[in-house]
Amino acid sequence: MIVRRNMRRASPLFLVTLVLGFCFATYNLVTIVMHNRSISKWMVDDSNGGIFFDPVIGRPENMSKPKNAKLPFHVALTATDAPYSKWQCRIMYYWYKKQKDLPGSEMGGFTRILHSGSPDNLMDEIPTIIVDPLPAGLDRGYIVLNRPWAFVQWLEKATIEEEYILMAEPDHIFVTPLPNLAHGGYPAAFPFFYIKPAQNEKLLRKFFPEEMGPVTNIDPIGNSPVIIKKDLLEKISPTWMNVSLKMKDDPETDKAFGWVLEMYAYAVASALHGVQHILRKDFMLQPPWDLEIGKKFIIHYTYGCDYNMKGELTYGKLGEWRFDKRSFLRGPPPRNLPLPPSGVPESVVTLVKMVNEATANIPNWDTE
């Protein structure tokens, strides 16, 4: 467990710099956003047509977890109504229900935040709240740009009993009961090897001014998985949304960060608010690179798993045996997927077995 410290509080000079630094959004971006009343309340425009966000706050004081006290967290995942998203959500929710009440778990309620703007056929199966997508054209084909906006809306309109929230994703499977890994004002997050603030200082300085300290104050994380206090997320989310839009509107940043742009935006937004995370490598494993389950809590099956029949990894080349979620973009995988050949790591075998168990027990599995 790693706790990162030494953050600075925002100064008046920083706030002035922040306003000036965020005043160069394009006219078209502002026009699109300001025509949508529900989103415009979270975005501030100045006389130059720029977009920036409310002043940042200092980091809350550290709080230790009372001994033997349970601190439940609400599980929240953003999703669309596409078949690809729906079958992953169904598997994820199945394993949430299996693990929720086991010893060691501090999982509370569950919400699928559906940012397609209208109901789908899973409303009765999975607890769901409907929120609006971004105004047409604003995500520019980058669908996950809707995620921070979805959280902003959900936090505003929902009644959430738990003090903490886990931001999760459809391709997460709870492999063991998950406790609350956060400690008061210190959220818990998984460190991603490909989020490298120090190597991207030139780009990040467009959004994280020098007055806030070194770019190493930006955690190497995304927004998921993260367990965070609800009141902190309420403060960070509008900033996260605005930084995401600003990054997407900057061609150099958009090209450099690509599909992880929104992850960088969450890390920057957290740092701007003086919030740093406890980095937990045991939060999650990612087959095929992580070979064993060990004492980890979540399987994240974002990578394809390709092997020959000798059990040797052939990543980058279609395997004789393979499991890749992208093989099922238009509908759910069939029940009873073949298990991998002998010699394939435990993590991959466990993943396929857990998918098979879920699909065998979820009614009407073939429904899109």
Rank of each mutant, 00 (worst) to 15 (best):
L291N: 04
I299W: 00
P127K: 00
N6T: 08
G343E: 03
L272G: 10
L279I: 07
A69T: 10
F151Y: 14
Q199T: 05
G304I: 03
F257H: 03
K157S: 11
E125R: 01
F190Y: 15
L114F: 04
K235E: 10
Y307P: 00
K235T: 07
D249H: 13
K235S: 08
Q153D: 15
H74Q: 13
N200D: 11
P191L: 10
A189L: 05
I113R: 00
P197E: 09
H277S: 08
T350N: 01
V3D: 11
A198T: 15
H35G: 14
G21Y: 04
G304M: 03
I39M: 07
R205W: 11
A182W: 06
E161C: 11
E292F: 06
A269E: 07
R8Y: 03
P345W: 00
I129Y: 06
L285F: 04
P66T: 11
M241G: 10
N48P: 07
Q286C: 13
D282I: 07
W240G: 05
T80D: 05
N223Y: 15
D250P: 00
D254Y: 12
W42N: 13
I221R: 12
S327A: 15
F297E: 05
V30R: 14
A265M: 10
V131I: 14
I221V: 14
S47M: 15
I126E: 01
S327V: 14
P334T: 05
C89Y: 00
G109F: 00
Y142V: 09
H115W: 10
V215P: 03
T350G: 01
C23L: 12
G274L: 06
G319D: 03
N48R: 12
R330S: 11
E210N: 06
L313N: 04
N28I: 12
M43H: 11
I227T: 14
L178G: 02
E320C: 01
G274K: 03
K310R: 14
M34Y: 15
L285Y: 04
G184H: 03
S118Q: 06
D45S: 15
Y94P: 11
V19I: 08
R147C: 06
G274C: 01
D306F: 05
L339D: 01
D120R: 00
T26G: 15
Y266F: 06
N68D: 08
P12E: 13
M123T: 03
I57P: 03
P170Y: 02
G141H: 09
